[in-house]
């Protein structure tokens, strides 16, 4: 395993890139709730599928679409 991981925001990931959610960087309680309710939490493995017009990523066996604002909140360890 490559140990030299670093943190970037989901919105800066490349398409098809994989990573593990490290942190949800926001004080906006409602965004936080939404992400958590869909199971997007630190430790969740995700893969970015598409960036435009919206961000689409794979969580487990489902795909989730979010806007840029929410995507930028998700900090990912790659």
């Amino acid at each position: 395993m490559n140990k030299s991981t670093h943190l970037i925001s989901l919105s800066d990931m490349k398409i098809q890139q994989k990573g593990v959610v490290a942190e949800l960087v926001t004080d906006n309680g409602s965004i936080l709730r939404k992400l958590m309710s869909m199971g997007i939490l630190p430790g969740t493995r995700i893969k970015l599928i598409q960036k435009f017009p919206s961000y689409v990523f794979q969580v487990g066996y489902t795909q989730v679409a979010v806007d840029r604002e929410i995507a930028s909140v998700i900090s990912v360890n790659i």
Binding site: S30, V56, T62, Q63, V66, D67
Partner: peptide, 11 residues
Amino acid sequence: GDKPSFYMEVP
């Protein structure tokens, strides 16, 4: 009011 935000599961 608040700006809308978008999140949706894509089945």
